[in-house]
Amino acid sequence: MRLVTHNMLQCHVKGCNSNNFPLQLSDVEIEIQETDFNPKFLRNMLSKLEWNALVKTALEINITTLPNVLPNDLDEEFLKMLHRVLLETHIKQGQMICPNCNHTYPIKDGIPNMLLSETET
């Protein structure tokens, strides 16, 4: 799972409707997989992310390179750093914890399992 995917996820336990995003990452194992750099793709994608949540989540996995505010002028060096964080960084193992209800969603072999048991839906 990449951080872009994580940026879209929220807790969906029944009745958990506020403060349920972003899910907190814990006990993670990270793997870097290189991929082609596509600056136009990256620029367009950036405006679609919840930046504050992304910065917070990145810090949880010790990525400290993201500024608190997305700069207006995105030079190549900055985009390459983002490329690494957003598209090449994969969370292979770990869990995601809801900040509101503490429900835990596991990530195994890079795959988050978001299924709930019947009583939680």
Binding site: M1, Q10, C11, Y105, I111, P112, M114, L115, T121
Partner: peptide, 30 residues
């Protein structure tokens, strides 16, 4: 999960969820 493992093994961003209750924010996708 078995189909998702195949999808993930092909290098695609993949996750397990239920279509009746999607675990995503409101209005987050293009």
């Amino acid at each position: 999960s078995n189909l998702i493992e195949i999808s993930a093994s092909r290098g695609f961003e993949s996750l397990i969820c239920d279509a009746l209750k999607l675990p995503y924010r409101n209005e987050c996708f293009d």
